[in-house]
Simulated assay, not measured.
Amino acid sequence: MECLGASSAQNLQALSALLSAQQEEEDENYKNKTPSAGLGPGHIGPPTKKEVSTAYVKKNSKDIWSEEEVAEGSQYDDLADPRPQPKYEILLKQSVGTEDLFLGLSGKDPSSMCCEAMLVKIKLPDTKATDVVLDVKEKFLDLRTPKYKLGLHLPHPTHSRGGKAQFFSEREELEVTLPTKRPMDFINLQ
């Protein structure tokens, strides 16, 4: 058994020497590598000058952000205002005719890309139409009443000037219809 133990100790030492020699050889090969070995496909061609993005260049040294970085409607966010947010629902509207429904001639589909307008239904219990103050921007709807406030970031850009609002006293609900700005109008022919 001792003979086997001595043999295995010699084997371990021989293995250790073999591995350390191999490690030294790899280290030596790594040092001798040319700088081109670390190059990739992005290094092909003449070196390009990296341009600084103008979106983050400050115009005034005292400014800590630019106007483009601030989300539209953030000036209306008031965390100290105790008024609750009313319940609301956003529906997308699409004009569909019989040629769309039965024949599919216009190429419209049920996706939001083909919708022409956005309908925002806002429940306003115990509110009169004269108490509602509504301001609509391209991507933000701001509604204020004595009892409620709603600052709503809209899911799609809208034509704020072409919208209409209607208050239904019997349902105590305000419906705001806003035509959407669709990025692919050349596909969604009207």
Rank of each mutant, 00 (worst) to 15 (best):
C3I: 14
V70L: 13
K121I: 06
V120K: 06
H43E: 09
Q166Y: 09
P46G: 15
L105Q: 15
T177S: 09
P155M: 14
V133C: 01
I187T: 05
K128C: 01
S169R: 02
S74N: 05
V57D: 05
D109V: 11
D78G: 00
D131H: 06
Q75S: 12
P86D: 04
T145G: 04
K49A: 13
G162Q: 05
N11I: 08
Q22G: 10
K31A: 14
E26S: 07
Q22E: 15
C114K: 04
P183H: 04
N11L: 09
L39C: 10
L141Q: 06
H153R: 08
K58V: 06
L119V: 10
E173Q: 00
A80I: 05
W65A: 11
Q190F: 10
L152T: 07
Y88W: 11
P155N: 10
E175R: 08
L19F: 09
P157E: 02
L134T: 05
L189H: 15
L79K: 06
F102W: 15
N60K: 10
I44T: 09
G42V: 11
M118V: 04
A55V: 07
L101N: 13
M113Y: 11
L19Y: 04
L18A: 15
R83W: 06
T98F: 15
D27P: 04
A17W: 04
A14R: 11
A14H: 09
S20P: 00
K149W: 03
D185N: 12
P46R: 12
E68L: 08
P41N: 01
E116R: 13
E172K: 02
D77N: 08
M113F: 15
V136D: 00
E24C: 02
P183A: 11
T130C: 02
P86A: 03
P46V: 13
K149E: 02
M1S: 14
E89S: 13
M113H: 13
N29T: 08
Q10Y: 09
D81Q: 06
L4Y: 02
L143P: 02
L92Y: 15
V132Y: 02
K147V: 07
V57T: 07
G163R: 05
F167E: 01
P82E: 05
S36T: 09
L154T: 02
D185K: 12
L154N: 03
K93F: 04
H43L: 01
F140H: 11
H153I: 06
Q94L: 12
D27S: 12
G40T: 03
A117V: 01
L152F: 14
E99N: 15
K181G: 02
D78L: 04
D126M: 03
K50T: 09
G42I: 11
